[in-house]
Write a protein that binds this DNA or RNA. Structure first.
Lengths: 174, 174
DNA sequence: GTATGTGCAAAACGTTTGCAAGTTC
DNA sequence: GAACTTGCAAACGTTTTGCACATAC
C-alpha cells in the first residue's frame, strides 16, 4: 500500500511530469486522427488545460480558469471536448456523489482509488496492489471481465484541525 | 467471497426476509419518534414500498409504481421521505454514474459491493470479507476513520446472451 | 466542397424549495 | 393551536441538444 504524494498537499510528484504535456497532446492527436476527429484550437486549448492539471477537476473548473484568462470557449464545447477525451481514453470520470462530475487524465497517472474526507472534502489517492489483485480475482472467479472500477472510501481525515476543516468545508462548492 | 443470490436472477434470498417488513416499519417509527418526525400515511406508504423492495431502486421507480396503482403521492414528498429514511439510517444511496441516484434499504441487508454490467446494466452484489478487511486496514494505517465506502466494478457479465444484452440495454432507462 | 465543429440559447434531467393549505400530536 | 407535513409549481444546477454559422481537411 502506497500513498501517492497528494496534489492537495503538494503537487511536486505530478509537476515532475510536466514535460509530458506535449507528449500527451501528441498522443491525443494520434488518437483523434485514428478516429476522424478534427483538430481545432478549442480542443487543443481544453486538452492542454486538462493535461496540465494534476488534480481532480470539474468542467466548471476549466470554464472558470478560461474566464479568468479572458479565453472565450463556450460551455457546450467544453462539455463536448470532455466527452471526446473520455472516448479517446485520455480521461476518466468520477462521481463522488456531490452532484458534479469530476475528471482526471489518465496518461502517466496509474490506477488508484480515492478517499474522500467527509469533513473537509479533500480527495486523497492511494494505490494498493493487493486490493487490485483481489478485485480482479473476484471478477474472474465469477465470470465477469472487469473493465474499470471505482472505490470511493468516505472517511474523516486526521490531516487538518477542526478549524481548518470548518474553513475548507465552507469554501467547498461541491 | 460469496455471491449473494441476486435479486436480478431470483429474489428468493430476500423474499425470506419478507416477514421483516413490519419489523422495519416498527424500527422506523421508533427512530422517527426519537427524532421528532411525525407519522403520516405518505411516509408509511413510501416506507412500506421501500422495505418490500429487495433491489436497487430510484425515486422514479417508486413514483411509477404508485401511479400504476392509482396512489397519489407527490414527487416532492417522495424525495423528502427518502431524505428522511437516509437520515434515519434505514437507506443507503448509490451513485453508479448513470445520472440517477439508486437506493437500497439497510435493515437485514449486510454491506456488500456491486458489479455493474456495461452491456446489460444489471447490478450484481457480492460480499468479500477479505476485501472489507483490506479497506479497513488501509484506512487505519493512514489515519482515516472510514465511515462508508463504495466499490463499483464495471464489467461485462457472462450471464446473458448477446441478444438478451441488446434487449436489456434497450429497456434501460438509466 | 463536404463533413465536422462551434457558440448560443433553450431544453432536458433529476432534484430541491417556497409557499399556501392540510394534518398530526 | 403550534409545529410539522403535503402538494403544487417554480427554481435549481449540471449537462445535453437544435440549429445557424464557421472551420478543418
Amino acid at each position: 500500500m502506497d500513498f501517492l504524494p497528494l496534489s492537495h498537499y503538494s503537487n511536486k510528484f505530478w509537476l515532475m511530469h510536466k514535460g509530458d504535456v506535449n507528449e500527451e497532446m501528441a498522443l491525443m492527436h494520434r488518437r483523434m486522427a485514428e478516429r476522424g476527429y478534427k483538430s481545432t484550437p478549442q480542443r487543443d486549448e481544453i486538452a492542454r488545460w486538462v493535461f496540465q492539471t494534476h488534480d481532480h477537476f470539474t468542467v466548471e473548473d476549466i470554464l472558470e480558469d478560461f474566464r479568468k484568462d479572458g479565453k472565450k470557449i463556450s460551455q457546450a464545447t467544453c462539455y463536448r471536448v470532455i466527452q471526446m477525451l473520455l472516448q479517446l481514453n485520455l480521461l476518466i470520470e468520477h462521481d463522488f456523489g456531490r452532484g458534479v462530475r469530476f475528471y482526471e487524465h489518465t496518461p502517466g497517472h496509474p490506477h488508484h482509488d480515492h478517499i474522500i474526507c467527509n469533513e473537509c472534502g479533500q480527495i486523497f489517492e492511494f494505490q494498493s496492489e493487493e486490493l487490485e489483485n483481489l478485485k480482479e480475482s473476484i471478477c474472474q472467479k465469477n465470470g465477469f471481465s472487469m473493465t474499470r472500477h471505482n472505490l470511493s472510501i468516505y472517511a474523516n481525515c486526521n490531516r487538518c484541525t477542526p478549524e481548518e476543516k470548518a474553513e475548507k468545508a465552507k469554501k467547498r462548492r461541491y
